[in-house]
């Protein structure tokens, strides 16, 4: 995607519906969006998705928003590790577990 501003709640929802254990949306640093406020909108959408995911029992913590600039390779790695740890802690997506059980 050219900008996290293009990420909508539905994209995050569909990912979990299809079995993803986590979704990390990584945008530019706040205040440095090339399209003014794309990353800020993305953050609000992630927050909205978190609420819905909590409601339906998937767990809002599985969706996270991160910000970094394109030159920050190590920080990207750090966020990826962080996200992986978080998801490991939370365990597999209950939707996938239920799907497998049904199959």
């Amino acid at each position: 995607m050219p900008c996290t501003g293009k990420v909508d709640v539905i994209h995050i929802m569909r990912s979990f519906e299809k079995g993803a254990d986590g979704v990390a949306v990584v945008g530019c640093l706040e205040g440095e969006c090339h399209f003014n406020a794309g990353n800020l909108m993305a953050r609000r959408r992630v927050e909205q998705a978190q609420k819905i995911l909590d409601t339906v029992g998937v767990g809002g913590q599985r969706a996270q928003m991160y910000n970094l600039s394109s030159s920050e390779g190590p920080r990207f790695a750090q966020y990826a590790t962080e996200m992986t740890e978080k998801i490991k802690e939370l365990g597999p997506n209950p939707i996938r577990v239920a799907k497998n059980k049904a199959a």
Binding site: I10, M13, R14, F16, E17, I52, L53, T55, V56, G57, V58, P94, I95, A98, K99, A102
Partner: peptide, 10 residues
Amino acid sequence: SALRMNARKE
């Protein structure tokens, strides 16, 4: 999508 996930989980 939310309704589908909720049903599936239950």
